[in-house]
């Protein structure tokens, strides 16, 4: 929280230095995010994939693992949902949706769990690198599928897949964007919360994350829970992709590199891995993004300022030791003024 406040203040200073009115700009940002029903619809809709993927990243963090590749798992989820979405026909709408969502979830889980999970558990390969590499592989795989000549390429000039059968689309609740997808996000947060704090599996997963040595001594298999955590994490990111494509794009296409998987990491960090915190953080960053567009239109302040703010927030979250260090530095300065620095001062 403190991190965001500091970041927002720094953003205001940057804007002011460049000759913009920071108050007006931030005002436009807030209005753009929540001011109208359209804005609210976009903000809530944008928060859904962030929340789902953010829950995934948080689950991995709980087990002491850094899933930096949620983006790739997200796209694998999209790919599988779309494939199921236009290949299967004749299913009742609700069942079709369900099949797509489950397929996306499982695919994301396998993508995150199998290779990075096993490589980490049995070969010691760092999951930061492997999940990141798997993420790029997924993105190129998706591009290959829809490029001209690719197996999922829809006839026509654009690099895109055919559309998902309309029956499987999620229902719009508040135009233009908010769909029943929002229930998936809330539901997933509840399930993750319940699973983390009320099941033996969640308990062991947390134990492995909090102290793998003690977990091992207590008879918990650390490798098994490593694979499991990365798999669950991938499942949620895959679910994010599946739900999002059923709600909005309805087909696999590029052009807009969404980056939900990356922002999801920021969301999880800011929420300190609590499932309900993830919902709030997702809303915050989604608002930043949709509000940023309005800010650019109203005050001419580029929306990319919101990325600057995000970067600063992450920096301050990581560098939390800055606070005690600043206090210590201030005390030392005061102490030094009050008395001559003693010989013991060298202790770093």
């Amino acid at each position: 929280m403190l991190a965001s406040v500091v970041a927002i203040l720094i953003g205001a200073v940057i804007a002011a230095v460049l000759g913009f009115n920071p108050l007006a700009a931030y005002g436009a940002l807030v209005t753009g995010a929540f001011g109208t029903s359209m804005a609210l619809s976009s903000t809530l809709a944008g928060a859904v994939p962030l929340a789902l993927a953010g829950l995934g990243v948080a689950v991995a963090f709980r087990a002491g693992l850094f899933n930096i590749g949620a983006e790739g798992q997200y796209w694998i989820g999209v790919i599988v949902a779309v494939w199921l979405g236009y290949h299967l026909t004749g299913l009742p709408g609700w069942l079709h949706t369900l099949v797509c969502v489950v397929g996306a979830t499982l695919a994301g889980g396998l993508w995150g769990g199998v290779i990075p999970g096993l490589a980490k558990a049995y070969r010691g390969a760092h999951e930061v690198i492997t999940t990141m590499m798997m993420s790029y592989i997924a993105i190129y795989f998706g591009q290959y599928l829809i490029a001209a000549g690719g197996p999922m390429h829809a006839p026509g000039y654009n690099a895109q897949s055919p559309q998902i059968v309309k029956d499987a689309w999620l229902t719009v609740l508040l135009p233009p964007q908010l769909t029943t997808a929002v229930f998936f996000a809330i539901g997933a947060a509840l399930v993750v919360w319940w699973g983390t704090f009320h099941t033996t599996v969640g308990f062991r997963l947390r134990a492995v994350g909090a102290n793998p040595h003690a977990a091992r001594y207590a008879g918990i298999s650390v490798p098994v829970y490593t694979v499991l955590a990365l798999g669950l994490s991938g499942m949620l990111a895959g679910l994010a992709g599946g739900v999002q494509v059923l709600a909005l794009d309805h087909r696999l296409m590029w052009g807009f590199n969404t980056g939900y998987g990356y922002t999801a990491i920021v969301v999880a960090l800011m929420a300190r891995n609590h499932p309900f915190g993830v919902l709030l953080a997702a809303l915050f960053f989604s608002a930043l993004s949709t509000g940023g567009q309005n800010m650019q239109m109203v005050s001419q302040l580029p929306s990319s300022l919101t990325d600057v703010l995000t970067g600063l927030i992450v920096f301050f979250v990581a560098a939390e030791r800055i606070v005690p260090l600043t206090i210590a530095w201030y005390r030392r300065r005061r102490g030094a003024r009050a008395q001559v620095a003693s010989a013991r001062e060298g202790g770093r």
Binding site: I68, Y262, V266, L305, D307
Partner: peptide
């Protein structure tokens, strides 16, 4: 002694935003 991976992400997001801005 901050987490170096998180810091690296922060730098990437910050630089992308700052240069665009």
């Amino acid at each position: 002694a901050a987490d170096q991976v998180v810091l690296g992400m922060a730098v990437n997001i910050f630089a992308s935003g700052l240069t665009a801005f």
